[in-house]
Design a protein around this nucleic acid. Sequence first.
DNA 1: AAGTGGTCTAGACCACTCA
DNA 2: GAGTGGTCTAGACCACTTG
Lengths: 246, 246
Amino acid sequence: MLSERIISTGRFANRPLYLQLRDALAERIAGGEWKPNAAIPNESDLAREFGVSAGTMRKALDLMEAERLLTRRQGRGTFVNDQSSDELAARFSNIRGADGKRLCGQVKSSQITEGPANEQECTRLRLRPDERVYRIHRVLQQKGQPFQVEDVTLPAALFPELEDKKVSVTERIIVLAQECGILLGRAEERVSLGAASAGVAQKLAIAPGSPLLVLDRIVLALDGRPIEWRMGWCHLGDRYYLAEMV
Amino acid sequence: MLSERIISTGRFANRPLYLQLRDALAERIAGGEWKPNAAIPNESDLAREFGVSAGTMRKALDLMEAERLLTRRQGRGTFVNDQSSDELAARFSNIRGADGKRLCGQVKSSQITEGPANEQECTRLRLRPDERVYRIHRVLQQKGQPFQVEDVTLPAALFPELEDKKVSVTERIIVLAQECGILLGRAEERVSLGAASAGVAQKLAIAPGSPLLVLDRIVLALDGRPIEWRMGWCHLGDRYYLAEMV
DNA sequence: AAGTGGTCTAGACCACTCA
DNA sequence: GAGTGGTCTAGACCACTTG
Protein backbone atom coordinates (compact mmCIF):
# COMPACT_ATOMS: atom_id res chain seq x y z
CA MET A 1 0.00 0.00 0.00
CA LEU A 2 2.88 2.29 -0.79
CA SER A 3 2.25 5.29 -3.06
CA GLU A 4 5.01 5.69 -5.61
CA ARG A 5 7.57 8.18 -4.47
CA ILE A 6 6.24 11.48 -5.67
CA ILE A 7 9.33 12.92 -7.25
CA SER A 8 12.55 12.20 -5.58
CA THR A 9 13.97 10.09 -2.84
CA GLY A 10 14.60 11.37 0.64
CA ARG A 11 16.98 14.21 1.08
CA PHE A 12 17.87 14.69 -2.56
CA ALA A 13 14.55 16.32 -3.35
CA ASN A 14 14.41 19.43 -5.49
CA ARG A 15 11.58 20.63 -3.33
CA PRO A 16 11.26 19.64 0.32
CA LEU A 17 9.35 16.43 0.82
CA TYR A 18 6.78 18.01 3.11
CA LEU A 19 5.81 20.48 0.38
CA GLN A 20 5.42 17.68 -2.13
CA LEU A 21 3.26 15.85 0.40
CA ARG A 22 1.17 18.97 0.95
CA ASP A 23 0.53 19.20 -2.77
CA ALA A 24 -0.39 15.54 -3.04
CA LEU A 25 -2.80 15.74 -0.13
CA ALA A 26 -4.29 19.07 -1.30
CA GLU A 27 -4.94 17.41 -4.66
CA ARG A 28 -7.02 14.76 -2.90
CA ILE A 29 -9.15 17.49 -1.40
CA ALA A 30 -9.43 19.58 -4.58
CA GLY A 31 -10.23 16.47 -6.59
CA GLY A 32 -13.04 15.49 -4.26
CA GLU A 33 -11.36 12.28 -3.14
CA TRP A 34 -11.53 13.59 0.41
CA LYS A 35 -14.85 15.34 1.02
CA PRO A 36 -15.48 18.37 3.24
CA ASN A 37 -15.96 17.43 6.92
CA ALA A 38 -14.61 13.92 6.36
CA ALA A 39 -11.85 12.49 8.53
CA ILE A 40 -8.63 11.57 6.76
CA PRO A 41 -6.29 8.73 7.78
CA ASN A 42 -4.13 9.30 10.83
CA GLU A 43 -0.68 10.66 10.39
CA SER A 44 1.25 7.43 10.83
CA ASP A 45 -0.91 5.64 8.27
CA LEU A 46 -0.38 8.49 5.85
CA ALA A 47 3.33 8.49 6.55
CA ARG A 48 3.48 4.76 5.84
CA GLU A 49 1.44 5.16 2.67
CA PHE A 50 3.79 7.79 1.27
CA GLY A 51 6.93 6.17 2.61
CA VAL A 52 8.03 9.08 4.78
CA SER A 53 8.57 9.50 8.48
CA ALA A 54 5.72 10.57 10.72
CA GLY A 55 7.46 13.82 11.51
CA THR A 56 7.63 14.83 7.88
CA MET A 57 3.99 13.95 7.33
CA ARG A 58 3.12 15.97 10.42
CA LYS A 59 4.91 18.97 8.96
CA ALA A 60 2.82 18.73 5.80
CA LEU A 61 -0.41 18.36 7.78
CA ASP A 62 0.46 21.30 10.05
CA LEU A 63 1.08 23.44 6.99
CA MET A 64 -2.28 22.46 5.55
CA GLU A 65 -3.96 23.35 8.81
CA ALA A 66 -2.34 26.80 8.64
CA GLU A 67 -3.65 27.08 5.07
CA ARG A 68 -7.12 26.35 6.39
CA LEU A 69 -7.49 23.17 4.40
CA LEU A 70 -7.58 20.87 7.44
CA THR A 71 -8.52 20.94 11.10
CA ARG A 72 -6.67 18.70 13.54
CA ARG A 73 -8.12 17.84 16.89
CA GLN A 74 -6.16 15.99 19.52
CA GLY A 75 -7.74 12.68 20.38
CA ARG A 76 -10.19 12.87 17.48
CA GLY A 77 -8.43 13.05 14.16
CA THR A 78 -7.78 15.22 11.13
CA PHE A 79 -10.71 16.59 9.14
CA VAL A 80 -11.14 18.28 5.79
CA ASN A 81 -12.41 21.83 6.26
CA ASP A 82 -15.74 22.70 4.73
CA GLN A 83 -15.18 26.01 2.95
CA SER A 84 -18.93 26.60 2.88
CA SER A 85 -19.10 26.69 6.68
CA ASP A 86 -20.10 30.08 8.06
CA GLU A 87 -16.67 30.74 9.48
CA LEU A 88 -14.71 30.00 6.33
CA ALA A 89 -17.20 31.20 3.72
CA ALA A 90 -17.24 34.71 5.16
CA ARG A 91 -13.53 35.01 5.77
CA PHE A 92 -12.99 37.49 2.94
CA SER A 93 -16.01 39.61 3.90
CA ASN A 94 -14.78 42.38 6.12
CA ILE A 95 -18.13 44.10 6.50
CA ARG A 96 -19.40 43.62 10.04
CA GLY A 97 -22.87 44.07 11.41
CA ALA A 98 -23.63 46.24 14.43
CA ASP A 99 -23.03 43.10 16.54
CA GLY A 100 -19.47 42.83 15.27
CA LYS A 101 -20.05 39.59 13.39
CA ARG A 102 -18.99 39.08 9.82
CA LEU A 103 -21.87 39.81 7.53
CA CYS A 104 -22.63 37.26 4.89
CA GLY A 105 -25.40 39.20 3.21
CA GLN A 106 -28.27 37.35 1.64
CA VAL A 107 -28.59 37.69 -2.08
CA LYS A 108 -31.58 39.84 -2.96
CA SER A 109 -31.16 39.69 -6.70
CA SER A 110 -28.62 38.28 -9.05
CA GLN A 111 -27.92 38.15 -12.76
CA ILE A 112 -25.17 36.32 -14.59
CA THR A 113 -23.77 36.81 -18.06
CA GLU A 114 -20.79 35.41 -19.93
CA GLY A 115 -18.40 36.89 -22.43
CA PRO A 116 -14.78 37.60 -23.35
CA ALA A 117 -12.73 39.37 -20.69
CA ASN A 118 -12.32 43.08 -21.20
CA GLU A 119 -9.05 44.88 -20.72
CA GLN A 120 -9.55 45.63 -17.04
CA GLU A 121 -10.63 42.06 -16.31
CA CYS A 122 -7.57 40.70 -18.11
CA THR A 123 -5.33 42.85 -15.96
CA ARG A 124 -6.96 42.10 -12.66
CA LEU A 125 -7.44 38.37 -13.26
CA ARG A 126 -4.24 37.89 -15.29
CA LEU A 127 -6.13 36.50 -18.29
CA ARG A 128 -5.33 36.47 -21.97
CA PRO A 129 -7.62 38.68 -24.07
CA ASP A 130 -9.31 35.66 -25.66
CA GLU A 131 -10.32 34.06 -22.36
CA ARG A 132 -13.92 34.18 -21.25
CA VAL A 133 -15.41 35.28 -17.95
CA TYR A 134 -18.66 35.05 -16.06
CA ARG A 135 -20.04 38.32 -14.75
CA ILE A 136 -22.40 38.28 -11.82
CA HIS A 137 -24.31 41.33 -10.72
CA ARG A 138 -25.85 41.12 -7.27
CA VAL A 139 -27.63 43.08 -4.62
CA LEU A 140 -27.02 41.94 -1.04
CA GLN A 141 -29.36 42.59 1.83
CA GLN A 142 -29.39 42.24 5.61
CA LYS A 143 -32.71 41.81 7.38
CA GLY A 144 -34.59 42.84 4.25
CA GLN A 145 -32.52 46.01 3.79
CA PRO A 146 -30.32 46.14 0.68
CA PHE A 147 -26.86 47.42 1.61
CA GLN A 148 -24.44 46.42 -1.14
CA VAL A 149 -24.35 46.23 -4.91
CA GLU A 150 -21.57 44.16 -6.39
CA ASP A 151 -20.13 43.04 -9.70
CA VAL A 152 -18.22 39.78 -9.58
CA THR A 153 -16.03 38.55 -12.42
CA LEU A 154 -14.88 34.94 -12.56
CA PRO A 155 -12.61 33.26 -15.14
CA ALA A 156 -14.94 30.92 -17.03
CA ALA A 157 -12.24 28.28 -17.36
CA LEU A 158 -12.09 27.80 -13.61
CA PHE A 159 -15.82 27.53 -13.01
CA PRO A 160 -17.19 24.85 -15.32
CA GLU A 161 -20.11 24.34 -12.95
CA LEU A 162 -21.51 27.74 -13.92
CA GLU A 163 -22.28 26.48 -17.43
CA ASP A 164 -25.72 25.39 -16.22
CA LYS A 165 -26.66 28.19 -13.87
CA LYS A 166 -26.86 30.89 -16.47
CA VAL A 167 -29.77 32.60 -14.75
CA SER A 168 -28.78 33.63 -11.27
CA VAL A 169 -26.30 32.73 -8.56
CA THR A 170 -27.57 33.09 -5.06
CA GLU A 171 -24.94 30.83 -3.60
CA ARG A 172 -21.74 32.10 -2.07
CA ILE A 173 -18.99 32.21 -4.63
CA ILE A 174 -16.72 30.33 -2.25
CA VAL A 175 -19.07 27.36 -2.28
CA LEU A 176 -18.91 27.35 -6.06
CA ALA A 177 -15.13 27.39 -5.88
CA GLN A 178 -15.10 24.39 -3.56
CA GLU A 179 -17.33 22.48 -5.94
CA CYS A 180 -15.03 23.36 -8.81
CA GLY A 181 -12.01 22.02 -6.96
CA ILE A 182 -10.44 25.40 -6.29
CA LEU A 183 -8.47 25.78 -3.06
CA LEU A 184 -8.59 29.29 -1.66
CA GLY A 185 -5.48 31.18 -0.68
CA ARG A 186 -5.56 34.82 0.20
CA ALA A 187 -7.31 38.00 -0.89
CA GLU A 188 -6.64 41.67 -1.01
CA GLU A 189 -9.18 44.44 -1.04
CA ARG A 190 -8.83 48.10 -1.90
CA VAL A 191 -11.16 50.31 0.05
CA SER A 192 -11.99 53.79 -1.12
CA LEU A 193 -14.73 56.39 -1.05
CA GLY A 194 -17.49 56.84 -3.57
CA ALA A 195 -20.92 58.32 -4.08
CA ALA A 196 -24.03 56.45 -5.14
CA SER A 197 -24.82 56.69 -8.83
CA ALA A 198 -28.47 56.88 -9.80
CA GLY A 199 -28.62 53.16 -10.55
CA VAL A 200 -26.88 52.09 -7.36
CA ALA A 201 -28.90 54.53 -5.26
CA GLN A 202 -32.10 53.06 -6.56
CA LYS A 203 -31.03 49.48 -5.81
CA LEU A 204 -29.93 50.43 -2.30
CA ALA A 205 -32.96 52.65 -1.69
CA ILE A 206 -30.81 55.63 -0.77
CA ALA A 207 -30.41 59.13 -2.16
CA PRO A 208 -28.22 59.50 -5.25
CA GLY A 209 -24.85 60.91 -4.27
CA SER A 210 -24.91 59.30 -0.82
CA PRO A 211 -21.39 58.38 0.31
CA LEU A 212 -20.49 54.73 -0.17
CA LEU A 213 -17.57 52.49 0.67
CA VAL A 214 -16.12 51.19 -2.58
CA LEU A 215 -14.56 47.73 -2.31
CA ASP A 216 -12.28 46.30 -4.97
CA ARG A 217 -11.25 42.77 -4.13
CA ILE A 218 -9.13 40.09 -5.73
CA VAL A 219 -9.24 36.55 -4.38
CA LEU A 220 -6.31 34.27 -5.13
CA ALA A 221 -6.22 30.49 -5.10
CA LEU A 222 -3.71 28.68 -2.93
CA ASP A 223 -1.43 28.40 -5.96
CA GLY A 224 -1.60 32.16 -6.50
CA ARG A 225 -3.92 32.25 -9.52
CA PRO A 226 -6.52 35.05 -9.33
CA ILE A 227 -9.96 33.47 -9.23
CA GLU A 228 -12.34 36.31 -8.48
CA TRP A 229 -12.53 40.06 -8.99
CA ARG A 230 -15.28 41.82 -7.15
CA MET A 231 -16.27 45.47 -7.11
CA GLY A 232 -18.67 46.38 -4.33
CA TRP A 233 -20.55 49.54 -3.44
CA CYS A 234 -21.55 49.39 0.18
CA HIS A 235 -23.93 51.60 2.10
CA LEU A 236 -22.54 51.21 5.59
CA GLY A 237 -25.37 52.38 7.84
CA ASP A 238 -24.64 50.88 11.26
CA ARG A 239 -22.26 48.38 9.73
CA TYR A 240 -18.52 48.89 9.56
CA TYR A 241 -15.50 47.52 7.76
CA LEU A 242 -12.98 45.66 9.91
CA ALA A 243 -9.41 44.93 8.82
CA GLU A 244 -7.30 42.57 10.91
CA MET A 245 -3.54 42.84 10.70
CA VAL A 246 -0.70 40.68 11.89
CA MET B 1 26.43 27.50 31.20
CA LEU B 2 23.05 25.90 31.79
CA SER B 3 20.08 28.17 32.45
CA GLU B 4 17.94 26.85 35.24
CA ARG B 5 15.03 24.83 33.96
CA ILE B 6 12.40 27.43 33.36
CA ILE B 7 9.41 25.81 35.01
CA SER B 8 9.14 22.13 34.68
CA THR B 9 11.14 19.22 33.50
CA GLY B 10 10.72 17.68 30.09
CA ARG B 11 7.40 16.26 29.23
CA PHE B 12 5.63 17.01 32.48
CA ALA B 13 5.33 20.68 31.63
CA ASN B 14 2.13 22.54 32.28
CA ARG B 15 2.81 24.51 29.17
CA PRO B 16 4.77 23.08 26.26
CA LEU B 17 8.51 23.63 26.58
CA TYR B 18 8.76 25.43 23.25
CA LEU B 19 6.28 28.06 24.45
CA GLN B 20 8.23 28.59 27.66
CA LEU B 21 11.36 28.96 25.56
CA ARG B 22 9.63 31.47 23.29
CA ASP B 23 8.71 33.55 26.34
CA ALA B 24 12.22 33.39 27.76
CA LEU B 25 13.79 34.44 24.46
CA ALA B 26 11.18 37.14 23.82
CA GLU B 27 12.00 38.55 27.25
CA ARG B 28 15.62 38.90 26.19
CA ILE B 29 14.51 40.98 23.23
CA ALA B 30 11.97 43.05 25.15
CA GLY B 31 14.48 43.65 27.94
CA GLY B 32 17.10 44.91 25.50
CA GLU B 33 19.51 42.08 26.22
CA TRP B 34 19.36 41.22 22.53
CA LYS B 35 19.35 44.38 20.41
CA PRO B 36 17.55 44.95 17.09
CA ASN B 37 19.52 43.67 14.09
CA ALA B 38 21.91 41.69 16.32
CA ALA B 39 22.61 38.03 15.70
CA ILE B 40 21.64 35.64 18.47
CA PRO B 41 23.42 32.35 19.28
CA ASN B 42 22.85 29.46 16.95
CA GLU B 43 20.14 26.99 17.72
CA SER B 44 22.32 24.21 19.10
CA ASP B 45 24.08 26.58 21.50
CA LEU B 46 20.72 27.89 22.67
CA ALA B 47 19.40 24.36 23.02
CA ARG B 48 22.40 23.44 25.14
CA GLU B 49 22.05 26.57 27.25
CA PHE B 50 18.41 25.82 28.06
CA GLY B 51 18.90 22.09 28.35
CA VAL B 52 16.49 21.12 25.60
CA SER B 53 16.89 19.32 22.32
CA ALA B 54 17.73 21.24 19.19
CA GLY B 55 14.36 20.34 17.66
CA THR B 56 12.47 21.93 20.52
CA MET B 57 14.56 25.07 20.39
CA ARG B 58 13.96 25.21 16.65
CA LYS B 59 10.23 25.07 17.22
CA ALA B 60 10.45 28.07 19.56
CA LEU B 61 12.61 30.01 17.10
CA ASP B 62 10.30 29.21 14.18
CA LEU B 63 7.37 30.49 16.20
CA MET B 64 9.20 33.69 16.97
CA GLU B 65 9.97 34.15 13.31
CA ALA B 66 6.26 33.79 12.54
CA GLU B 67 5.59 36.40 15.22
CA ARG B 68 8.00 38.73 13.43
CA LEU B 69 10.42 38.90 16.32
CA LEU B 70 13.25 37.13 14.50
CA THR B 71 14.53 36.54 11.01
CA ARG B 72 16.40 33.35 10.22
CA ARG B 73 18.64 33.05 7.21
CA GLN B 74 20.13 29.79 6.11
CA GLY B 75 23.89 29.88 6.22
CA ARG B 76 23.96 33.21 8.07
CA GLY B 77 22.23 33.01 11.41
CA THR B 78 19.24 34.23 13.40
CA PHE B 79 18.71 37.96 13.84
CA VAL B 80 16.53 40.14 16.03
CA ASN B 81 14.06 42.09 13.91
CA ASP B 82 14.25 45.84 14.05
CA GLN B 83 10.67 47.03 14.45
CA SER B 84 11.68 50.49 13.30
CA SER B 85 12.65 49.18 9.87
CA ASP B 86 10.46 50.48 7.08
CA GLU B 87 8.87 47.12 6.48
CA LEU B 88 7.89 46.44 10.07
CA ALA B 89 7.16 49.97 11.24
CA ALA B 90 4.50 50.46 8.58
CA ARG B 91 2.90 47.08 8.92
CA PHE B 92 -0.25 48.42 10.56
CA SER B 93 -0.61 51.31 8.10
CA ASN B 94 -2.94 50.15 5.37
CA ILE B 95 -2.97 53.42 3.46
CA ARG B 96 -1.09 53.00 0.21
CA GLY B 97 0.28 55.63 -2.09
CA ALA B 98 -0.46 55.76 -5.80
CA ASP B 99 2.57 53.51 -6.28
CA GLY B 100 1.02 50.79 -4.10
CA LYS B 101 3.60 51.11 -1.34
CA ARG B 102 2.64 51.43 2.30
CA LEU B 103 2.56 55.06 3.25
CA CYS B 104 4.39 56.01 6.38
CA GLY B 105 3.40 59.66 6.37
CA GLN B 106 5.77 62.24 7.72
CA VAL B 107 4.61 64.05 10.77
CA LYS B 108 3.73 67.63 9.89
CA SER B 109 2.69 68.70 13.36
CA SER B 110 2.25 66.98 16.67
CA GLN B 111 1.09 67.80 20.18
CA ILE B 112 1.09 65.57 23.23
CA THR B 113 -0.84 65.85 26.47
CA GLU B 114 -1.31 63.58 29.45
CA GLY B 115 -4.26 62.90 31.72
CA PRO B 116 -6.58 60.31 33.22
CA ALA B 117 -8.26 57.98 30.74
CA ASN B 118 -11.81 58.91 29.82
CA GLU B 119 -14.60 56.36 29.56
CA GLN B 120 -14.07 55.59 25.89
CA GLU B 121 -10.33 55.20 26.35
CA CYS B 122 -10.87 52.85 29.28
CA THR B 123 -13.09 50.66 27.14
CA ARG B 124 -10.88 50.58 24.08
CA LEU B 125 -7.59 50.16 25.95
CA ARG B 126 -9.01 48.03 28.79
CA LEU B 127 -7.82 50.44 31.47
CA ARG B 128 -9.11 51.18 34.94
CA PRO B 129 -10.65 54.64 35.34
CA ASP B 130 -7.73 55.86 37.45
CA GLU B 131 -5.06 54.99 34.91
CA ARG B 132 -3.41 57.74 32.93
CA VAL B 133 -2.87 58.08 29.19
CA TYR B 134 -0.84 60.12 26.76
CA ARG B 135 -2.80 61.75 23.97
CA ILE B 136 -1.01 62.64 20.77
CA HIS B 137 -2.59 64.75 18.08
CA ARG B 138 -0.88 64.69 14.74
CA VAL B 139 -1.16 65.76 11.14
CA LEU B 140 0.54 63.51 8.60
CA GLN B 141 1.69 64.60 5.19
CA GLN B 142 2.99 63.07 2.00
CA LYS B 143 5.21 65.13 -0.29
CA GLY B 144 4.25 68.27 1.57
CA GLN B 145 0.52 67.59 1.27
CA PRO B 146 -1.31 66.93 4.54
CA PHE B 147 -3.61 63.93 4.15
CA GLN B 148 -4.45 62.59 7.61
CA VAL B 149 -5.33 63.93 11.03
CA GLU B 150 -5.04 61.48 13.89
CA ASP B 151 -5.53 61.21 17.62
CA VAL B 152 -3.44 58.55 19.32
CA THR B 153 -4.02 57.40 22.88
CA LEU B 154 -1.36 55.40 24.74
CA PRO B 155 -1.51 53.94 28.26
CA ALA B 156 0.99 56.03 30.22
CA ALA B 157 2.11 53.04 32.27
CA LEU B 158 3.46 51.30 29.18
CA PHE B 159 5.37 54.26 27.77
CA PRO B 160 7.68 55.57 30.49
CA GLU B 161 9.94 57.05 27.83
CA LEU B 162 7.28 59.63 26.98
CA GLU B 163 7.76 61.31 30.35
CA ASP B 164 10.41 63.52 28.81
CA LYS B 165 8.99 64.24 25.40
CA LYS B 166 6.01 66.21 26.56
CA VAL B 167 6.15 68.56 23.61
CA SER B 168 5.78 66.64 20.40
CA VAL B 169 6.28 63.17 19.04
CA THR B 170 7.41 63.00 15.47
CA GLU B 171 8.71 59.48 15.76
CA ARG B 172 6.73 56.47 14.78
CA ILE B 173 4.81 55.09 17.70
CA ILE B 174 6.16 51.64 16.95
CA VAL B 175 9.69 52.83 17.51
CA LEU B 176 8.65 54.18 20.90
CA ALA B 177 7.11 50.81 21.73
CA GLN B 178 10.34 49.01 20.86
CA GLU B 179 12.30 51.34 23.11
CA CYS B 180 9.83 50.71 25.91
CA GLY B 181 10.24 46.94 25.60
CA ILE B 182 6.82 46.29 24.11
CA LEU B 183 6.55 43.42 21.64
CA LEU B 184 3.90 43.99 19.00
CA GLY B 185 1.24 41.45 18.22
CA ARG B 186 -1.68 42.24 16.00
CA ALA B 187 -4.02 45.10 15.25
CA GLU B 188 -7.56 45.63 14.09
CA GLU B 189 -8.92 48.65 12.35
CA ARG B 190 -12.49 49.75 11.77
CA VAL B 191 -12.97 51.67 8.57
CA SER B 192 -15.99 53.86 8.02
CA LEU B 193 -17.11 56.98 6.21
CA GLY B 194 -17.05 60.51 7.53
CA ALA B 195 -17.07 64.13 6.51
CA ALA B 196 -14.45 66.72 7.34
CA SER B 197 -15.31 68.93 10.29
CA ALA B 198 -14.23 72.54 10.11
CA GLY B 199 -11.12 71.88 12.17
CA VAL B 200 -10.05 68.80 10.24
CA ALA B 201 -10.81 70.45 6.90
CA GLN B 202 -8.55 73.32 7.77
CA LYS B 203 -5.68 71.06 8.78
CA LEU B 204 -6.02 69.02 5.62
CA ALA B 205 -6.56 72.05 3.39
CA ILE B 206 -9.81 70.69 1.99
CA ALA B 207 -13.40 71.89 1.96
CA PRO B 208 -15.42 71.30 5.13
CA GLY B 209 -17.78 68.38 4.61
CA SER B 210 -15.44 66.60 2.18
CA PRO B 211 -15.76 62.84 2.46
CA LEU B 212 -13.07 61.17 4.56
CA LEU B 213 -12.08 57.65 5.47
CA VAL B 214 -12.40 57.28 9.23
CA LEU B 215 -9.94 54.81 10.76
CA ASP B 216 -10.33 53.45 14.27
CA ARG B 217 -7.45 51.19 15.18
CA ILE B 218 -6.39 49.19 18.20
CA VAL B 219 -2.90 47.73 18.37
CA LEU B 220 -2.30 44.79 20.71
CA ALA B 221 0.97 43.62 22.18
CA LEU B 222 2.12 40.05 21.65
CA ASP B 223 0.63 39.17 25.03
CA GLY B 224 -2.74 40.61 24.00
CA ARG B 225 -2.66 43.86 25.98
CA PRO B 226 -4.01 46.86 24.04
CA ILE B 227 -1.20 49.37 23.66
CA GLU B 228 -2.52 51.98 21.26
CA TRP B 229 -5.85 53.42 20.20
CA ARG B 230 -5.79 55.63 17.15
CA MET B 231 -8.55 57.53 15.42
CA GLY B 232 -7.62 58.80 11.98
CA TRP B 233 -9.38 61.00 9.46
CA CYS B 234 -7.88 60.43 6.06
CA HIS B 235 -8.32 62.38 2.86
CA LEU B 236 -7.63 59.69 0.31
CA GLY B 237 -6.85 61.64 -2.85
CA ASP B 238 -4.96 59.24 -5.10
CA ARG B 239 -4.16 57.03 -2.13
CA TYR B 240 -6.18 53.97 -1.20
CA TYR B 241 -6.70 51.64 1.72
CA LEU B 242 -5.55 48.06 1.22
CA ALA B 243 -6.66 45.16 3.41
CA GLU B 244 -4.91 41.82 3.04
CA MET B 245 -6.71 38.68 4.11
CA VAL B 246 -5.67 35.12 4.65
C1' DA C 1 -8.47 0.58 26.76
C1' DA C 2 -7.58 1.97 22.24
C1' DG C 3 -6.68 5.48 19.08
C1' DT C 4 -5.70 10.17 17.93
C1' DG C 5 -2.86 14.33 17.58
C1' DG C 6 0.90 17.02 20.44
C1' DT C 7 5.48 17.26 22.41
C1' DC C 8 10.19 15.99 22.88
C1' DT C 9 14.49 13.68 21.91
C1' DA C 10 18.96 12.46 19.42
C1' DG C 11 21.07 12.18 15.55
C1' DA C 12 21.99 12.42 10.41
C1' DC C 13 22.71 14.89 6.29
C1' DC C 14 21.64 18.89 2.94
C1' DA C 15 21.88 23.78 1.20
C1' DC C 16 23.54 28.03 1.82
C1' DT C 17 26.94 31.88 3.20
C1' DC C 18 31.18 33.72 4.04
C1' DA C 19 35.97 34.12 5.14
C1' DG D 1 36.12 24.47 5.01
C1' DA D 2 33.69 25.88 8.94
C1' DG D 3 29.43 27.37 10.52
C1' DT D 4 24.65 28.35 9.92
C1' DG D 5 19.74 27.18 9.37
C1' DG D 6 16.59 23.55 6.80
C1' DT D 7 15.06 18.86 6.15
C1' DC D 8 14.36 14.17 7.48
C1' DT D 9 14.37 10.10 10.37
C1' DA D 10 12.93 6.82 14.22
C1' DG D 11 11.40 6.47 18.25
C1' DA D 12 9.39 7.65 22.97
C1' DC D 13 5.86 9.35 25.84
C1' DC D 14 1.93 12.76 26.96
C1' DA D 15 -2.90 14.64 26.66
C1' DC D 16 -7.13 14.19 24.93
C1' DT D 17 -11.42 11.86 23.04
C1' DT D 18 -14.32 8.10 22.46
C1' DG D 19 -16.36 3.59 23.05
